[in-house]
């Protein structure tokens, strides 16, 4: 009776994930920039199947994740939406500087869900034939800074002023355009792929010369320095298998 009770209690604890993990498989806690949610879920699944380790993912805005890490959040790897924040964490002694690497490079696209709105040279920006142009907040989102740099290079910024609406991040910016509240907007190439297929509408893939590359860097945090599962995940992110997955989501790689 007693044995049966303790056996079922043990099973319950195991189910709830409270028990000790099996010796060979480890766990790694990863803070991931929200724009990388979909690819990272797929990569984590493949990583789990290949290595037996489990990657526990937490998604959020880069600035918020930084604040959490700086205040003791139990993350072991940080996958940022920019390259500055991981560098800053390394400077502040919260991350291992040599481990920093670029896991994806974002591409900027001017997009409208309607056909014939955006031409393939971005001339629509000069025409002013629209009410709202959505960009991500340039102060907080790398895609926003890239969009502003593009508008500046085109000399379109002064005339556009009052028509510019800002999403807090690239996801919200996409939402503004997808719901038709802004006729067009600067979004991420990765957002225009749904299950490997390109979304409809019209687009201008902004040439790389118009903006600084949107490097998304990852870094090993001090809390994960001695965790073999963390080292394994970083190695996996650099593998051909993971790189192919990252590309399939519309990102480039160095």
């Amino acid at each position: 009776m007693f044995q049966r009770l303790s056996a079922s209690l043990g099973a319950l604890i195991a189910v709830l994930g409270l028990g000790a993990a099996p010796a060979r498989a480890g766990e790694v806690h990863v803070a991931v920039a929200a724009n990388f949610t979909a690819p990272m879920q797929k990569i984590a699944a493949a990583f789990g199947a290949d290595s037996g380790h489990r990657a526990v993912l937490a998604f959020g805005a880069t600035g918020k994740l930084y604040a959490q890490i700086a205040n003791g959040a139990p993350f072991e790897i940080f996958m940022s939406a920019d390259d500055e924040t991981p560098a800053r964490l390394a400077r502040e002694g919260l991350a291992k500087a040599p481990s920093r690497f670029t896991y994806a490079i974002g591409r900027l696209v001017l997009w409208s869900p309607d056909e014939g709105v955006v031409d393939d040279r971005g001339a629509v920006l000069q025409s002013g034939s629209f009410r709202h142009l959505a960009v991500a907040n340039p102060r907080t989102a790398p895609y926003g800074a890239a969009a502003m740099s593009t508008l500046e290079k085109l000399g379109a910024l002064p005339a556009l002023g009052p028509r510019l609406v800002q999403g807090e991040n690239i996801t919200q910016t996409f939402q503004f355009v997808a719901t038709g509240n802004a006729e067009l907007g600067f979004v991420a190439a990765s957002q225009l792929l749904k299950d490997g297929k390109a979304l409809g509408g019209s687009r201008w893939d902004v040439p790389a010369a118009f903006y600084e590359p949107i490097r998304q860097d990852a870094v090993l945090l001090v809390k994960g320095a001695d965790n073999p599962a963390a080292a394994a995940l970083i190695a996996f992110l650099k593998s051909d298998k993971a790189r192919a997955m990252i590309r399939s989501y519309g990102y480039e790689l160095p």
Partner: peptide
């Protein structure tokens, strides 16, 4: 409230 959020996000 949005301005505060921006400040925090921009560190």
């Amino acid at each position: 409230s949005v301005q505060i959020y921006d400040h925090v996000e921009a560190l």
